[in-house]
Amino acid sequence: MSADTDPFALFDLPRRHTVGRDAIEARYLELSRAAHPDNVVGEGTAARRAAVERASAVNAAYRVLRDPVLRAEALVKLGGLDLDSTDPERGAPHPTQEFLLEMIELRERLEDGGPAGLDALRDDVDARSEAALDAAIAALDAGEFRRAAEHLVARRYFQRFLDETEASAP
């Protein structure tokens, strides 16, 4: 990840999950002002294009830094593990068989149980998704990127389940 795509570097923040919300907002305003297209009115095409790209990078970084999940995933990526990649070394770690079986069983419970137990099931998975994020943040604080990545993969599976139940809800 280059300095351009390292949101923490762009915002002059330490690579930590805990970030000051005010610091992000202040820096965002500052960077947005600096990258504003009005600053390059009358300059050449290249300068104008560079300003647009810069503004877009600032917005992308801002989006990541404000979101606890995206922030954790970005830190893992800076630690050398890309959750969007299937590379066996540097990609998302594979969950255990037990975990995958449980993900199947969750769906089966959903299909068999009908809407009756849906809320309880959703609450349960939602809590586990939150817990997985907390565990990932704790691992990040300890500098253990692989363990953090494992928790974030689990969180993606929980999130996927929640998205599905959302989609199938009446």
Binding site: L83, D84, S85, T86, G91, A92, P93, H94, P95, Q97, F99, L100, L101, M103, I104, V153, R156, Y157, Q159, R160, F161
Partner: peptide
């Protein structure tokens, strides 16, 4: 056989 695609959360039995 149970396999998963961690990047997208797909799971297959």
């Amino acid at each position: 056989g149970i396999v998963g695609a961690p990047a997208c959360g797909d799971v297959m039995k």
